[in-house]
Amino acid sequence: MDKSSSSSPTYSERYADVTISSSDGVLFKLHRKNLEVYSEGFPGTDVPVHGEVVALTEKASTLELLFQYMYRERQPDLGKVHLDELALLAEAAEKYLVYSAMGVCKVHMQLAISVMPLKVLGYAAKHSYESLCVDAAQLTIDAKAVDALQHMDLICFAKWASAFAG
């Protein structure tokens, strides 16, 4: 039996020059130049890393999606991504300023308003997407305050509560 046809593909890490660790311990070998070009949230190639592993707070599944936006390859079909994972990806894209992911995440968060309006409202308020805030807020009128507080910072929550206080 041909060994190459039965085993998983292997990838050369020869040119990868940074290792990133997810919060759940998965290591990603990446190219710093790609991180520098496609985001503003990672150090550029001018910052020495001396072979150390860069630990991030996001889990592997979120980073796997995010890093696809930093390479010339097909982007993930976010219509097939679980909504909770979409929300995590949207936050990571904003955090690391991955502009190629930010716009498409925002569109998919807009599409998810009817399913998770509080989560979308919190995301939209945090990242100053005013029209998305308005759209999401309209669907949260019957939400419990304790549930709303889980998804919003205190400033957003205060605005939300005063808008529906009557």
Rank of each mutant, 00 (worst) to 15 (best):
M1W: 09
M1K: 15
D2C: 13
K3R: 15
S7K: 14
E13P: 02
R14A: 02
Y15P: 09
Y15H: 02
Y15W: 13
A16I: 02
A16P: 14
D17F: 12
V18Q: 09
I20S: 09
I20T: 03
S22A: 13
S22W: 12
S23E: 15
S23P: 10
D24L: 05
D24Y: 04
G25T: 11
G25V: 10
G25I: 11
V26F: 01
V26R: 03
F28G: 15
K29L: 15
H31T: 06
R32H: 15
R32Q: 15
R32E: 13
R32N: 14
K33E: 06
L35V: 07
L35Q: 01
V37F: 05
Y38G: 13
G41I: 11
G41V: 11
G41A: 12
F42L: 08
P43L: 04
G44W: 08
D46A: 11
D46Q: 10
P48C: 11
V49H: 10
H50M: 14
V53W: 11
V53A: 05
V53H: 10
V54H: 13
A55Y: 03
A55G: 06
L56C: 11
L56A: 06
K59S: 12
L63A: 01
E64V: 00
L66R: 03
F67N: 13
Q68L: 08
R72P: 04
E73R: 15
R74W: 02
Q75G: 00
Q75F: 14
P76I: 08
D77F: 10
D77R: 08
G79H: 09
K80Q: 10
V81P: 05
H82W: 02
H82S: 07
E85W: 01
L88I: 04
L89S: 02
L89C: 04
A90L: 14
A90M: 07
A92W: 09
E94S: 03
Y96A: 12
Y99W: 07
A101Q: 07
M102R: 11
M102K: 10
V104W: 06
C105S: 03
V107A: 06
V107W: 00
V107L: 07
V107N: 01
H108D: 00
M109N: 04
M109K: 03
Q110R: 10
Q110F: 07
L111P: 00
L111Q: 15
S114N: 05
S114T: 10
S114H: 13
M116Q: 10
M116I: 06
L118P: 09
L118S: 14
K119T: 08
K119F: 07
L121G: 04
A124S: 04
A124D: 03
K126Y: 06
S128C: 08
Y129M: 00
S131N: 13
C133H: 07
C133F: 02
V134R: 09
V134Q: 05
A136D: 00
A136G: 03
A136F: 05
Q138Y: 04
A143G: 04
K144W: 04
D147N: 14
D147Q: 14
A148Y: 08
H151I: 02
D153C: 04
D153T: 02
I155C: 06
C156Q: 00
A158L: 14
W160V: 02
A161F: 07
A161M: 04
S162F: 06
A163I: 08
F164M: 08
